[in-house]
């Protein structure tokens, strides 16, 4: 496995509890096969708390395996609103991750 492999995956479709299984698969295999993964969520039709939880799981996996996971662009709009409602900007490193290091919490 090349050490500089970087994959940008674009998520689309339904990232709610009904479709989260597919998103789980996609992120899992991307992180498994690459050292760096950049996730583009611009095309997501819908998401809910299960998506946030999935990304948190992915962050943990990346940290534990010494890989890099980042968002292609800072969370905004409805996603940002949901993150704030759920207090996810207050987790350790949460704000940095979700805002791509571009803003304070």
């Amino acid at each position: 496995m090349p050490s500089d492999s970087c994959l940008r995956i674009s998520l689309s479709g339904d990232a709610t509890i009904r479709g989260i299984g597919d998103v789980h698969q996609k992120i899992s295999s991307a992180l498994h096969e690459n050292e760096e993964v950049e996730v583009d969520i611009g095309e997501l039709a819908d998401f809910d708390l299960t998506f946030v939880q999935l990304v948190e799981a992915a962050r943990r996996t990346a940290t534990n395996t010494g890989k890099k996971l980042a968002l292609a662009s800072p969370a905004s709009g409805p996603l940002l609103e949901m993150l704030q409602r759920g207090g996810f900007m207050r987790t350790p490193g949460g704000a940095d991750f979700w805002l791509c290091g571009r803003g304070g919490a």
Binding site: I17, I20, Q53, A57, R60, T61, G86, F88, R90
Partner: peptide, 19 residues
Amino acid sequence: VAAVVDNVPELGALTPAEC
């Protein structure tokens, strides 16, 4: 409000519909 994600497992152990 602060979320606590300490109990969120790694991807491999995650059942994504569970909380």
